[in-house]
């Protein structure tokens, strides 16, 4: 089981003002795997995943210690181009957030800001990413309708398509099913299983069954620390830490 490490967190501490949100987090994320991050509310899961593509840059008065690498490059290095990092590490958010534009334009936007101008190439890319996100069949007749008219689950798949279109290497999912119904959730999970063939995936989830179903590795966060990190199978069947066991058996959280 020696797989290639794609991203690595080394001794990461993170503070909102003076309040610590993450304490000495060390984690490896492997290529073509789904890494799940589980833990109760407020344990720092979202904070951590947002560090992986520097979405926390915008948070005022926050401070980071430690380093996070993407293929050996320190992504928080002042020399690193944040725009490049965010293109390589895409993100799908908790609440579907399509732009208030048409379905087509939603995907076109990402392509355009990355310098794509050729119309026919853009069209191909849009179709391609909608297919990859398993949305094409449902929207092919109404690409120019407002994205806001789609259902929640469709909107979320559109957000995934939008993310795929710019060809990221790693995709971060921050509780992607939190606002979806069970059927939409099942479709997104299926999609995750397909996407991991091509991409490296990190998913934050509240839903332990979901983590168990889709992930290869799981990290259990508690109060800003990683309590346990390992193969999903091991975490869920023979946890080493009593707190992990308490959490996954539903005694708290």
């Amino acid at each position: 089981m020696d797989k290639e490490i794609r991203m690595r967190a080394e001794g990461v501490n993170f503070f909102y003002g003076s309040r610590p949100a993450l304490k000495d987090v060390n984690l490896e994320i492997y290529r073509n795997q789904v890494t799940a991050i589980i833990g109760p509310s407020g344990c720092g899961k979202s904070t951590f995943i947002r560090l992986l593509n520097r979405m926390n840059d915008m948070v005022p008065k926050s401070r980071l210690e430690g380093r996070i690498f993407l293929d050996g490059d320190d992504i928080h290095d002042p020399e690193t181009d944040v725009v490049d990092i965010r293109r390589r590490v895409g993100m799908v958010f908790q609440k579907p957030n399509p732009f208030p534009k048409s379905i087509f334009e939603n995907i076109k936007y990402g392509l355009e800001i990355n310098g794509m101008r050729d119309k026919s190439v853009i069209e191909d890319k849009v179709v391609d990413s909608l297919k990859k996100a398993a949305l094409w069949e449902e929207v092919k007749g109404r690409l120019y309708d407002s994205a806001l008219r789609l259902s929640g689950g469709q909107q979320q798949r559109l957000c995934i398509a939008r993310c795929l279109a710019v060809e990221p290497e790693v995709i971060l999912f921050d509780e992607p099913c939190a606002s979806l119904d069970p059927i939409s959730t099942a479709r997104i999970e299926e999609l995750l299983m397909e996407l991991k063939q091509e991409y490296t995936i990190v998913i934050v989830t509240h839903n332990m069954q979901q983590a168990a179903r889709v992930s290869g590795n799981t990290a259990f966060f508690l109060l800003g620390e990683i309590v346990e990190f390992g193969k999903t199978q091991d975490i869920f069947t023979k946890p080493r830490d009593s707190r992990t066991e308490a959490y996954i058996t539903g005694r708290f959280g």
Binding site: M55, K95, F99, I113, R162
Partner: peptide, 20 residues
């Protein structure tokens, strides 16, 4: 959330302001 969506696609601040 719209700003974040745009940033996460690799947009700069200026692109996000201008287009979103």
């Amino acid at each position: 959330s719209l700003r974040e969506a745009s940033f996460a696609l690799g947009a700069t601040r200026w692109q996000t302001i201008k287009k979103i």
